[in-house]
């Protein structure tokens, strides 16, 4: 792709994003309730964690604020991910009611076009909650990170966005074969994501392996949190947490390729 087409693409993306925001602003009350709602539902989980640790003090050696940090780190990148990719889960709806075809009769890249369709401002609620929670945890835990740890933190947020975005892209790609995707989000990704709000070491070894090497959820929050909170990893070096960004990049591009494969299959098979 040439430089000018990148410029054009970027400009177009911002135009479409602005349109999407205006569309969501149409329901003004809903716009704010949506943001507030997301923030509240995550605060709810944090309260649950607090209640849980009230009688038990710690979970697998994680104190309440460490747990909050782990959780908020996941929510932070999930928030960014929701902004860009959350609507991918409902690709099945677009395919079933035929509106997906519109992405194929326009002179722009279908993945890009579909991605630009929605810019989910509701996710500002997640960002609001997670930034507040990370900040509080940082203070409560008396953390004082050197520069490189901020790098690890940033890499975890970007990498986490790419990993979770990748999984959403993967889920949406399933729709090209089975005309179903949203259900997979609720049945597989939502519970899996909930599990990752707690320290990975809780779960059997097999699961730890799957989320480290196959669906790399571990790089979203658990591995970087170990490094950032100076906790040892039960079996690997704690420096694994520094590679979230690289893992995210590789994983996302694989998922993107699978999506494009799905698109080709859609083009040859129809729906």
């Amino acid at each position: 792709m040439s430089f000018s087409s990148w410029v054009r693409g970027t400009r177009l993306y911002f135009h479409m994003v602005a349109a999407s925001i205006r569309a969501q602003m149409q329901y003004r009350y809903g716009f704010f309730m949506n943001i507030l709602g997301w923030a509240m539902s995550y605060a709810g989980t944090a309260v649950t964690m607090w209640v849980m640790l009230y009688s038990f003090q710690s979970l697998e050696g994680w104190s309440f604020w460490q747990l909050i940090f782990l959780f908020a780190l996941a929510v932070l990148s999930w928030g960014v991910c929701v902004i860009f990719f959350f609507h991918f889960r409902s690709l099945d709806q677009y395919i079933l009611n035929g509106t997906f075809d519109r992405f194929l009769v326009r002179p722009i890249h279908p993945f890009f076009h579909f991605m630009a369709m929605k810019f989910d401002v509701g996710a500002f609620g997640q960002l609001l909650f997670s930034i507040a929670a990370v900040t509080l945890a940082y203070i409560q835990l008396g953390l004082d990170w050197p520069f490189w740890k901020w790098g690890v933190f940033t890499s975890a947020v970007i990498g986490g966005t790419l990993i979770q975005g990748g999984i959403l892209v993967l889920i949406s790609a399933i729709a090209f074969w089975t005309t179903r995707s949203e259900r997979f989000y609720w049945v597989v990704m939502f519970p899996a994501k909930s599990m990752m709000n707690y320290p990975l070491s809780l779960y059997p070894r097999a699961i730890q392996w799957v989320v480290t090497f196959i669906l790399p959820f571990a790089f979203v929050n658990y591995l970087p949190a170990l490094l950032l909170l100076d906790k040892p990893h039960p079996s690997f070096s704690s420096y694994w947490g520094a590679f979230s960004f690289a893992v995210g990049l590789v994983f996302f591009s694989i998922c993107y390729q699978i999506w494009m494969m799905g698109l080709n299959r859609y083009k040859s098979a129809g729906s």
């Binding site: 329901y27 009350y29 809903g30 716009f31 309730m33 949506n34 507030l36 709602g37 997301w38 509240m40 539902s41 709810g44 309260v47 509701g122």
Partner: peptide
């Protein structure tokens, strides 16, 4: 209510 995001979350929480 036109939009029920908040109500929903109170309920689920």
């Amino acid at each position: 209510l036109m939009e029920t995001g908040g109500v929903e979350d109170i309920f689920y929480f």
